[in-house]
């Protein structure tokens, strides 16, 4: 007799419960991940160059400060990209969305891939 109503109530309740779950925003995340990887890599190399140049200026290590720091910056850039890609792949495998969240190079969370 009231099956229809009960069903509608159950549906409304389910919808309400679903809203309480964190909703992943999925659109266009792949592009965001791409932009992020590229700029993380370049930023790390620039940091290396800047730091190296600064050390050279301060201590007169030229050109070794620049060379070493540029190398470290490059390694950091690769690490950033690997970390972001690992995180994105993990989230894609986990919930089917190209996850942008937590995709930052999380210091202290990338176990061992810094080496």
């Amino acid at each position: 007799m009231s099956e229809d109503l009960n069903q509608r109530i159950a549906e409304a309740q389910a919808k309400l419960d679903a809203q309480k779950q964190p909703s992943a925003i999925d659109s266009a995340k792949g592009m965001g991940v791409g932009f992020k990887m590229a700029s993380d890599f370049i930023a790390a190399v620039i940091v290396g160059a800047g730091l190296g140049w600064g050390l050279d200026e301060l201590f007169g290590w030229s050109p070794w400060g620049l060379i070493v720091c540029l190398l470290l910056g490059f390694i950091t850039g690769v690490k950033n990209i690997v970390a972001a890609a690992t995180e994105a792949a993990r989230q894609t495998a986990e919930n089917g969305s190209t996850g942008l969240r937590n995709m930052a190079p999380k210091s202290g969370q990338d176990k061992g891939d810094g080496a």
């Binding site: 009231s2 109503l5 009960n6 109530i9 409304a12 309740q13 309400l16």
Partner: peptide, 8 residues
């Protein structure tokens, strides 16, 4: 919704 459930 809960009121509707109760009424039902």
């Amino acid at each position: 919704v809960s009121e509707a459930a109760a009424a039902s």
